[in-house]
Design a protein around this nucleic acid. Structure first.
Lengths: 225, 225
DNA sequence: TCCAGTAACTTACCGTCGGGTAAGTTCAGC
DNA sequence: GCTGAACTTACCCGACGGTAAGTTACTGGA
């Protein structure tokens, strides 16, 4: 009786012990959002379930009851992000067919749109700190392989002028493209006010400027492989 | 007396308990190399001292005796990498003065040369999983800030055709450049046989090809800021 | 030749933190 | 007032950072 029974406690500081009346579906969504951010920011290993739970205002145990083990929570974060990203890239590359010079920017725009609201999701997908064995690495690896395959289709177009492509060059170019996208998303995360459209326009400006700079440069050592 | 006294035991499987006769300076070097790789691959948080010790063939305790706490070991890895990278970038940007279109490739070549033998060091410097408070984040942050400042000098040159530079564009371009470098280093780590010179030539080829592709493209939305 | 002294290591231990589980507690609706 | 959904407290366990106290072997004198 020391505590004022707190029927409509709201966000009061009194630690309620029973139900808070939040439906499961809503809580799951809150947890998924918080977990995606935590996994994306800190990486799988450094992300702690307690931190996720604190962010939602809930206990670690509830996460386990709703999502199972840490692995499973990660997978629950990964799946929607992976699907959305994959769909976005596929759609953007289907428009305009292959070899359209506007494809890279269209892909970027699609990515920004797909990630809007869950920007950190990109880093859930491309988390380098995943334990090498285990389901998370496998599932994330499958998504990445599929996305990279699409990206390689696009980057390969730039190289095969004469039909003979150095496979190492192609792979490196794909890495470079992926790294570029990652960096732009990272910048975007640090500038929450920017809309996907603003980002797409910014990228267009930057690409034009960078392209002009590098195209002017003589390709030293072209013949040396 | 059950063990055959093992004077010249070498790498025998018998768990020696006393000294192994390796001078401190050599051990310290071995530990630093292993730790740099471990920190770079897994990130600060996921890297475990036991794993580093195992790699060297030594006990966790010795790491503590030689380097102190985990933080200090990290700092001991960070310092040489940061200094080498910083010196390399400074030197490469001093050559040829500002606005030389060859600067980006010269910087890349300098970076590859500076990192050769400790390629994972780059990811020690740019470890996103560092605990935000504490000396590691501060020191790494200082190195990064200085390197980014130099990078920003270079990337800004591309933008200020008319003297009026959008500061957000400049910052984003710097992020993009850093992400590009990171991706190329990551590719390099996965292809150990590649020499720094081969990498530099490969980058020259890729830049030329990508530049041609983007320069051809009309910069949609140039006026919209 | 024996005997410190010191350098190079290890075993055995502690505290903490994070993942995971069992058993409850509160509340809404019928 | 009973059932089930929402949520917590209290606990276990293992891994990891960190420390104290040895153990082995080389080295230079008396």
């Amino acid at each position: 009786m020391t505590r004022p029974s707190a029927r409509t406690a709201g966000t009061g500081s009194a630690p309620r012990v029973g139900t808070k009346g939040v439906p499961r579906a809503v809580r799951e969504r809150q947890i998924l959002d918080a977990a995606t951010e935590e996994f994306g920011r800190r990486g799988y290993h450094a992300a702690s379930l307690t931190a996720v739970a604190d962010r939602v205002g809930v206990t670690k145990t509830l996460l386990h009851q709703y999502f199972g083990a840490k692995q499973d929570l990660y997978l629950a974060c990964l799946t929607p992000v992976g699907d959305r990203v994959l769909d976005a890239v596929r759609a953007a590359m289907a428009d305009g067919g292959g070899r359209d010079p506007g494809t890279p920017l269209r892909v970027l725009h699609a990515l920004f749109t797909a990630l809007e609201g869950r920007r950190e999701g990109w880093f859930v997908l491309y988390d380098p700190s995943l334990p090498a064995d285990g389901e998370p690495a496998r599932r994330a690896g499958r998504y990445r392989a599929e996305i990279d395959r699409l990206a390689a289709l696009g980057t390969a177009d730039l190289l095969d002028e004469d039909g003979a492509v150095d496979p190492l060059d192609a792979d490196a170019l794909m890495y470079a493209w992926r790294g570029l996208v990652t960096a732009l998303v990272r910048w975007w995360v640090k500038h929450p006010g920017q809309s996907p459209e603003q980002m797409a326009r910014r990228c267009a400006r930057l690409f034009a400027v960078a392209g002009a700079a590098f195209a002017a440069e003589p390709p030293t050592g072209t013949s040396a492989r």
